[in-house]
Computed example of a mutant assay.
Amino acid sequence: MSFRQTPPTHTPYDGSSKLFTIGLRPLDPGAWIAIDGHLLTYLAEKRRLYAEIPGRVFVEEEGTREAQREVLDLLGAHLVAKFPEVYQRFGTGVEVIGAPSNLHDGGLAAGSHAPLVAASLLVQEDLILMRRDESGWRLVAGSLCFPSSWSLIEKFGRPLQEIHAPVPGFGPGTRPADLINRMFDGLQGQAVERYNWSIQAGDALYHPLSNLERIDRTTNRPSKFSDGDIDVRAVIRVERQTLRKLPASRDVLFTIRIHLDPLSVLARHPDRARLAASFAAQLLALDEVQLDYKGMTADRDRLVAFLNHMTNAA
């Protein structure tokens, strides 16, 4: 996809959403889903992934179709009401004006008849369905076309505490893991949101990484960047995540929206000096385990130098 060249929409690295914290906050229901000028590009990439690697980007357990349909109905009603210039009713469903119809599309591979797939082809967000049982909140269905360094197949069917096991400080038995489970239990009609962010090389939306591909220390992993190309290749990957409990099934819908912004566009932000300084400070605050998890051990100092230069030049 072509890079966004305008100032970033979301800047959680300004200190408002620190890494490796839960950071949930109430969400205005009217702001649940966000769309922008890249909508059709995102949807085209989702269709490509569904056609080429369907088993890696969509999973479902038996008995989840009713909850998936609930997601599709809830999402469709919201989109038509909120964005009537972009979405319209079509038969018994909803479609994106100017995009291939989800209702008459024979070009998608297995899973294309699942309501969650149809829902995912309306929005830029990925959609994950969590269900409570005796083991906790488990991932029972999901459309994940734009993973941020994790594997849907590896997380499928697992409870939250196992899903978060690789995250420093969030593994089974930790206080954050217990808090997240209680938060899921406590969700009622309200929606909440949080932000996460990282740095990647290039503009790939599909950015998976299996746990098996992780190594204990990344000091021997080569740098993603050379000294002269950070301003060209470094991309800020921001995840806007929302959670809401579905009224009928009582499952929890987890949405993940990816924003990709070249690191260099920070230079166009009116508050660039403060943003760059905060960004650098947060990178410097990460310990070795956290840097390893984020894949930035080899690049942290180079990134910090670039941001400090931006701060001093402002």
Rank of each mutant, 00 (worst) to 15 (best):
T9F: 05
P29I: 09
V117K: 08
V265H: 13
H259Y: 15
G76M: 08
A34E: 14
E62F: 01
N102W: 07
D185H: 02
F279W: 13
Q190M: 09
D105N: 14
G171Y: 09
L108R: 12
M1P: 09
I163C: 09
I180M: 14
F3M: 13
D261N: 15
Y195M: 14
Q241L: 14
H259C: 07
L144Y: 04
L243V: 08
L121Y: 00
D231M: 07
L24E: 07
K224S: 09
H104C: 02
E162Y: 04
V117G: 02
V71K: 03
L139A: 04
A191D: 05
S120N: 14
D292I: 00
G202V: 00
E61V: 00
P247C: 15
L19A: 14
H10T: 01
T218L: 11
V59A: 07
E213F: 14
R158W: 01
R268E: 11
G76D: 10
G171H: 11
V117C: 09
T219C: 04
R89D: 09
P115V: 02
R131P: 02
R131H: 05
F83E: 06
A31W: 02
L116D: 02
N211H: 14
N181M: 03
R182K: 13
Y87K: 06
A109T: 02
R244S: 13
E134K: 11
F90I: 01
L40W: 01
R131V: 00
T242K: 08
R274K: 13
F156M: 12
K245S: 12
D28Y: 11
A277V: 03
P172C: 10
D231L: 12
H113Y: 05
Y87D: 05
